[in-house]
Amino acid sequence: MRPTRDDVVLDVDGLRMRYGARDVLHDVTFQARHGEVLALLGPNGAGKTTTIEILEGFRLRSAGRIRVLGADPAQAGEPWRARVGVVLQSWRDHGKWRVRELLAHFGSFYAAYSTDLVRRPWDTDELIAAVGLTEHAGKKVRTLSGGQRRRLDVAIGIVGRPELLFLDEPTAALDPQARHDFHDLVRGLADHDETTILLTTHDLAEAEKLAHRIVILNGGRIVADGTASELARRIVGQDEVRWVRDGQRHTRSTPDSTAFVYELFQRHGTAIRELEVHRASLEQTYLTLVRQAESTPYGASAREPEEALR
């Protein structure tokens, strides 16, 4: 049966993680549907990596119910593993392997799990072309540049044509050009191949650009969940209006800048000069969030923004 956009691929309910006496994830709950790109956004230490590693099946949770492609990742077997892709950051591993040789080798693991619906693995040369490494296919992995290595990491993550792909901080340490190419690659996967993607990032611009939906994690709790524009409407506080009247500079914060400006002109007409309206941006809100997280000690930080934002 062909999956539809309504199918829930990722279902996390009440996820908790505790190290010793310290909780790093409190009651994390979210879902992702088939073909959706979901960004887990948050400052460093918010619990993003812990969450994604639990979903990848690489870490055991303390409590909560999790379904990833219909199975519990802590108990899922090899057929499940074949449907999931993980993009890892390469370092020195497989340095002596050549690009094509390595991808063909990794691809061979998936052949046994090919189905009528999903043909596995990806053809090696097509895959190399798709990530833009054709010129480097015969090179040894250790001779690749940082950006080329990242493309190879992505290629390894998708060689089995995963139905669900995990990307943990995929563009950290990439230069702007490599980052741009990488974004194109991820969007292509989501658009053409209907791959469901969960990525973590601390970069709001990246989340806005790539994701259909953003889940903001802070201090181990989810503080917001929605599309970029939903979040901007819901969590953003006040716009800022500035103007000059009679040589006097004024600044005012307001939830409805349009109505405020209309009223301002009705009252003062052309006496108003140098009008500026600053729409409160998601970015500002996010930065405020991050600042709060960094200035308050661990554990105590979470409650406040959560209540303020919901």
């Binding site: 593993r81 390469s90 020195r92 591993d93 990794f106 693991f109 998936y110 799990y113 390894i156």
Partner: peptide, 20 residues
Amino acid sequence: GEREDGTLLRAKALPDGMRA
């Protein structure tokens, strides 16, 4: 060495990877 450099983790991310 290969646990340190991530080779083992790559194997873990593949179906039947650890056995192979």
